[in-house]
Amino acid sequence: MNTRINVNEELIAYLKKNARAKGYYFNKNSVFVNELLKNLCVNLKRYGYASCPRRLSTSVYGLDSYLICPCRYMENDIKKYGSGFCALYVSKDAYEGKKETSPIPESRPKDKLFGIDYSNPSAKKLPIKNGNARYADMSV
């Protein structure tokens, strides 16, 4: 069977479905959301996983795994601030306009900000590896 699958559409559908299932919403600013989704797709193509466009990825899956959308910090940030760091996801109250959202601080521990210790740049010299377990259930 020759089935063409649009990887970007699959990714976006996955993120939307996942957000709905967990009770989060995409930001109402569709221009902003589309820009983030576009850049997630860029990262998916570049690294093999959709890491956060608001943070610097290393291209090493093991170092970037916490940054794969939805990132590991998103749920706590939404509970605390009403939106995630990137503001792609917001709480129900924020989506319905019951709560104002504003830019929030980075929750990622400082020593993990870039997934690496900058005094040890050799960690960056690993080759880019495509494919990852997180999206293994997607038909790509």
């Binding site: 608001r54 760091f85 601080p105």
Partner: peptide, 12 residues
């Protein structure tokens, strides 16, 4: 390193 001097969060 330059970016972190002006923005310690290092975000984009």
């Amino acid at each position: 390193k330059e970016l972190l001097l002006v923005n310690p969060q290092g975000c984009f």
